[in-house]
Structure formats: structure tokens, C-alpha cells
Simulated assay, not measured.
Amino acid sequence: MVHYYLSCKVSRENVLTAELRNAQRAVVAVRQALAVLSRGAPQLFNDPGLQPALGALGAGTGEAERALVSLSGALECRMARAYFVTAARAACDGGLQALSIQLLAAIVAGLLFTAIVLVDSHAWIYINTKRSVSGEEQAPFLSTGSAGSRTLPRPAPFPNGKPPSYSAAVQLMDLSDRDRDRERPR
């Protein structure tokens, strides 16, 4: 069916057209049966609600015939293909425009991120070169006032380049405490 609507070849018949013909035949059969019923029913049944019911049934049959005529026009290949082409062009044009804007935004975000990283790294290098070279580093999270101008000692490098485990660190702390206790004069 998709191939039929995309190619619009007259040699092939649309599957929906056969179903449409069946529906039109059914509506014609209902119209004929309604005509026979409308002639004979008032003579056989003496009901005042019969004529409005037959009129409503005739009106519904007329609506069905009009709907089938408009449906046959909508099922025409050229009309459906024109709608498809219009929708495809709109989707492609809008899609390409949105994709272009998205790519442009990604490039701008990448450039801004690169600029932020460069500015931050150069600022960090500048701050580190302005610090005193005495081997102590000021903690950046402390305030710069007189009470907060404490410095933190740099840790001594580890002998094998790796930090000790927790238990080894506790043992080293105990040893350093004992060494300090021995060195203090009593």
C-alpha cells in the first residue's frame, strides 16, 4: 500500500479502493431495502414513531454515501501523495534547521567550556606562582584575615611513592609521638 501511494502507478489497484467499493455496494443495498421498507411498513404497522425512525435511517444512509464519496477522493493517489510530499518537505526543512541550530549550540558550548578551562588553569598557575616558596601552602578555604592566616604544612613525600595503609599510618603516628616524648627535656 505504501508503494502504491509513493509511486502512483495506475497499473496497480489500491487495496483500500476494493474495500471502498464493497462499502458503497452495502450502502446502496441499505438504500434499496429502506425504499422497500418505507413503502410497505406504514401499511402494515400503524405506529406514529415509524416515519421519524425511517426518516432518520434515510438521513444516516445519505450521510454514509457522502462520507464514502469524500473518502474516495481522499484515497486518490495523487491527493495523498501531495499531502505526503508537503509533510516530508516540512519535516526535512524544519528538521535540518533544528539540527543546524543544535550543532551550532554544541560548538558554542564547547568553545565556552574550553575558554573556562583555559582561564581557570591559568588563574590556578598564577595563584600558585604568587604563593610563598617557603614550602608551606595556604589553605584556599581559610579566610585571609589575621585569625584565618594559618598555613598548613605540606606532607612529607612517601619513601616508595605510595601512601601507607591506614594501619601503617597509625603505627607511624605512634612512633612519631614516642620520638617526641623522648626528645622533650624533663
Rank of each mutant, 00 (worst) to 15 (best):
G73K: 15
E63G: 07
L104E: 14
T61N: 09
L57H: 04
V170N: 05
E65P: 00
V85Q: 09
R180C: 00
L104P: 02
V119T: 12
T129Q: 13
N128E: 12
T61G: 04
S143V: 15
G161L: 06
Q171L: 11
S165W: 01
G60L: 13
A59F: 01
V133C: 03
S72R: 06
Q171F: 06
G148C: 03
M1F: 06
A26W: 06
S121F: 10
V28F: 09
S146E: 08
A80V: 05
A59D: 15
Q97H: 09
P164G: 01
A18F: 12
Q102T: 14
R150F: 10
L111C: 07
A168E: 14
G95N: 02
G135F: 12
G148S: 05
R31C: 01
A82P: 00
C92A: 09
A106G: 09
G60T: 10
N14K: 03
V28Q: 14
L6C: 08
A88L: 13
L75G: 00
S38W: 04
R154F: 04
R178C: 00
N160M: 08
Q51W: 10
V69N: 10
R131A: 14
L104V: 03
A35D: 05
T129I: 05
R182Y: 03
P48C: 06
D174Y: 03
R186K: 13
S149W: 14
N160T: 14
A168C: 00
E65C: 03
L6E: 04
Q97P: 03
G62C: 04
S100W: 11
R21W: 09
V36K: 07
A23E: 05
S146W: 05
P155R: 13
Q32F: 02
Q43P: 02
R178L: 02
N14V: 00
Q43S: 10
R25S: 11
K162M: 06
D120C: 08
L103S: 07
V10F: 00
R81I: 00
A33P: 02
L112E: 12
A35G: 01
G145Y: 09
Y126G: 07
G60N: 14
A105F: 03
A115V: 04
V108A: 15
V85A: 12
L175E: 09
E136C: 04
L96M: 05
L44N: 07
R78Q: 11
V69W: 06
V30D: 01
P153Q: 15
P48F: 11
C8P: 01
Q24K: 14
L175I: 04
H122M: 13
C8D: 02
L99Q: 09
A168M: 06
L50Y: 04
E76V: 03
I125G: 00
L50K: 01
L50T: 02
A169P: 01
L16F: 13
T129D: 10
P163A: 06
A156R: 13
A87L: 07
G95C: 01
V10Q: 08
Q102C: 07
T86I: 07
T144M: 11
S143D: 08
L54K: 09
P163T: 04
